[in-house]
C-alpha cells in the first residue's frame, strides 16, 4: 500500500456503526434463547475454576472449542463477512483456535488451570467482564438490549472470556492458545475505535494487559534462569 502514512484508521472502515450494530440484533433474534445456555455455561466455568481447578481445562476446552466454531460459522461467515470481507479470513482462524482449545483440553500435558495469583485474578476479572459487563454495554451506549453482545453468541465477549480463562492457566500451551484471541482483540478493538465506540478500549486494554503480563513473565523467567 503506497503512501500508507496518509491513511487514517477510519479509512479502513467499510460500514457504518448502524449497520454493524444491527448485525447483532438480527443475530440475537435468530439464536435466542441460546444466550441463556451460553451465559450459564460461562458462569459454570468460573465456578469450576474456583472449586475444581484440576478438571477445569478439560471442560473449558470442551465448551470453548464448539463455541469458537459456532461463532465463526454463524456470525463471522454468515453475517459479518457480508459487510467486512476481513471477517471471512478471521473465520478460519477461529476454527484453528477451536482445534487448539480442544487439543489443549484432551492431550496430556495441557495447561493446568486454577491459577489465582494476580495474573489469574486479572483473568477472572476479564471473564466476568466478558460474561456480565459486555452484554450491558449495548444499553450503556444507548443501543437496544436486543443488540447485546453475549458470550458464545458474539465474537468479542467470547474472545474476552477465553483470554480471561487462559490467564488462570499455566503451561507451554498458552503460547499457542493466546495469539489468535489477542489478534482478534486487536482487530476488533481497532474496528470499534474507527467507529468511535468507547468499548474499543476494553478490548485494546485487554490486549495490552495480556501482552504486558506475558512480557513480565518472560522477564521473570529470564532473570530466574540467570540466577540459576
Amino acid at each position: 500500500m503506497s503512501e500508507w502514512w496518509t491513511y487514517r484508521l477510519d479509512d479502513f472502515l467499510l460500514f457504518s456503526p448502524r449497520v454493524y450494530w444491527r448485525l447483532f440484533e438480527a443475530h440475537n433474534a435468530a439464536l435466542w434463547p441460546l444466550h441463556l445456555a451460553t451465559m450459564l455455561a460461562g458462569l459454570s466455568l468460573v465456578v469450576l475454576i474456583l472449586r475444581r481447578p484440576g478438571r477445569a481445562m478439560l471442560w473449558t476446552g470442551l465448551l470453548l472449542a464448539p463455541l469458537w466454531a459456532f461463532v465463526a460459522w454463524t456470525f463471522l461467515l454468515q453475517r459479518y463477512s457480508g459487510i467486512n470481507w476481513a471477517a471471512s479470513y478471521a473465520a478460519p482462524a477461529f476454527l484453528v483456535q477451536a482445534v487448539l482449545l480442544l487439543a489443549a483440553a484432551l492431550m496430556p500435558g495441557g495447561p493446568a488451570m486454577g491459577r489465582l495469583d494476580a495474573i489469574g485474578k486479572t483473568g477472572l476479572g476479564l471473564v466476568l467482564a466478558g460474561l456480565l459487563l459486555y452484554p450491558a454495554l449495548a444499553l450503556a451506549s444507548g443501543r437496544p438490549l436486543a443488540g447485546a453482545e453475549v458470550f458464545g453468541i458474539a465474537p468479542d465477549p467470547t474472545v474476552l472470556v477465553t483470554v480471561g480463562l487462559l490467564l488462570t492457566a499455566r503451561g507451554r500451551w498458552l503460547a499457542f492458545l493466546l495469539p489468535i484471541p489477542l489478534l482478534w482483540c486487536l482487530f476488533s478493538g481497532l474496528t470499534l475505535l474507527a467507529m468511535g465506540e468507547a468499548q474499543a478500549w476494553l478490548l485494546l486494554a485487554g490486549t495490552v494487559l495480556v501482552a504486558l503480563l506475558g512480557t513480565l513473565r518472560l522477564v521473570r523467567r529470564g532473570s530466574r534462569a540467570v540466577r540459576e
Binding site: L14, F15, S16, V19, R22, A26, R79, I83
Partner: peptide, 12 residues
C-alpha cells in the same frame, strides 16, 4: 462507499 454496504439486512 459505506452507505450501501448493509449486508443481508433486508430493511436497510
Amino acid at each position: 462507499w459505506i452507505t450501501f454496504n448493509v449486508g443481508n439486512d433486508a430493511a436497510l
